[in-house]
Amino acid sequence: MLKQIILNLFGKKPALGRDAIRAMSGDVAGEPGASGPARLDAVFKRSIRIRQVDAGSCNACEWECTALGNPIYDVSRFGIDFTASPRHADVILVTGPVSLGMAGALKKTYLAMPEPKIVIACGDCAKDGGVYRGAYGVLDGAAAVVPVDGYIPGCPPNPAEIMKCIMDILESAAK
């Protein structure tokens, strides 16, 4: 164990640099936490808490959100963290087409958040139902239940894309 700790202190760091993330997501406008989203910093003081709510997704979108916390992407470097309680959240990140069974829970989570609150719909099916559009058990997207501020396209969007879109959406919401 001790050996591991020392290795980790002095060894090679696996985390991707900003450039690598930019390359993976195409074009990252404005570096997260750097000069770009200055207004964002003014509002959120470089600390953004996200409550993720799965409203009937296939679960791939959540795995990509989970990956944001791994040592490769490590979003907490940029002041972004996922939180358990909606009371601590600035942002609600919705995945899934909103199954009928989750509509009530999604609404409750949204209502439990303090103002200002921002809603981001992550993935194609949170946008308009995606592949599930028209199924009897879904509401064809998050907007049926909560006011959506921005969308992250993809099925699923990869972690770098999620990160880039979150920054962009937050920035325009902070304007």
Binding site: C58, A60, W63, S99, Y132, G134, Y136
Partner: peptide, 28 residues
């Protein structure tokens, strides 16, 4: 809670278009 009506949705798709739905039954 995440019941979406997937099996019924398959019926309206045609067999060839069912593949993308099968791919999204469970992410991993």
């Amino acid at each position: 809670f995440t019941h979406k009506g997937t099996e019924k949705l398959f019926e309206s798709r045609g067999f060839e278009n069912g593949v993308e739905l099968a791919e999204r039954i469970s992410g991993v």
